[in-house]
């Protein structure tokens, strides 16, 4: 295979669209993350362009795999594309980054959370959160809105907490009411934020059992390292985070593109 051949994976998520382009040697030559917005095709095109270092690179793309919630809404005229679910792409990336290891992947995205298990080099199971937004990025966005702070400030606030507030509700809306109660009780903002992070982790821990190497991925992990600490605290084991957790699924899609894996 010529060295200049390129392969791209695009993960169109509910909040962000991520693209990763690799060469035939599976080296990442570029990646990008942009807001998905409402025009998913536009987001995908933009993410693709931004993942390439030179304009000429686009002509060298031999195949693309599109994944994520918007995978069926996008197509490219000049590039062979196929789509595979984000669950399979995540598993693919895990097998590449952690070869020959049994791994439990925890992907926390904007609108859902997933637990994917790799056993003996194969995906053995997966589970997603139920319909409710508890345990997803949406929960954090709601929290920031309620506290009238930017969601980008949450992680630093969470690190300052010494006494996490108790937020036990399953429901994002009810959790908002609980936060109001905590405010009335005089709880510190950082403690409420940390309490909300705890709430997310607890919801995720209910989805499945956790064993072997536990790997956290997804946009929520990329921007909220506090969650990793809480997972370590509650699971009482070290947690792995890949170098680019938000683009992990897009990397898996790019690997599928390279292998020509299709359905």
């Amino acid at each position: 295979m010529p060295n200049n051949f390129l392969f791209t994976g695009i993960d169109i998520g509910s909040s962000f669209t991520k693209a990763v382009t690799i060469n035939a040697n599976k080296n990442i030559i570029g990646s990008s993350t942009i807001h998905s917005g409402i025009k998913l095709h536009v987001a995908a095109e933009k993410a693709l362009k931004e993942s390439l270092s030179a304009k000429s690179d686009e002509d060298n793309i031999k195949k693309m795999v599109i994944t994520g919630y918007g995978r069926k809404n996008t197509h490219f005229e000049d590039i062979i594309t196929s789509n595979i679910t984000e669950i399979s792409c995540s598993a693919k990336a895990a097998r590449f980054v952690y070869p020959e290891e049994d791994v439990t992947i925890v992907d926390i995205g904007g609108q859902d959370s997933k637990i994917i298990k790799i056993r003996d080099g194969r995906r053995s199971s997966f589970k997603m959160n139920r319909k409710c937004a508890a345990g997803t990025g949406t929960f954090l966005e709601e929290l920031a809105l309620k506290l009238r702070i930017e969601s980008t400030e949450l992680n630093n606030l969470g690190k300052l907490s010494t006494n996490p507030a108790k937020i036990s509700s399953y429901c994002t809306v009810f959790a908002g009411t609980e936060i109001l109660s905590r405010i009335r009780e005089g709880a510190k903002v950082e403690d409420m934020v940390r309490g909300a992070y705890h709430s997310i982790v607890k919801r995720v821990l209910e989805i499945d059992t956790f064993d072997n190497r536990v790997v956290l991925t997804g946009g929520v992990i990329a921007h909220n390292s506090v969650i990793v600490n809480i997972f370590e605290e509650l699971l009482e084991q070290p947690i792995s985070v890949p170098p680019t957790p938000q683009s992990f699924v897009a990397l898996g899609a790019a690997l599928y593109a390279l292998e020509g894996q299709d359905k």
Partner: peptide
Amino acid sequence: NVYSEEQTKTNIEAFIEQLAGI
């Protein structure tokens, strides 16, 4: 009202991919 179309579709598709060894 308690049915999530997108989530169900993705779950089913991912499950069949799993059966196919993808």
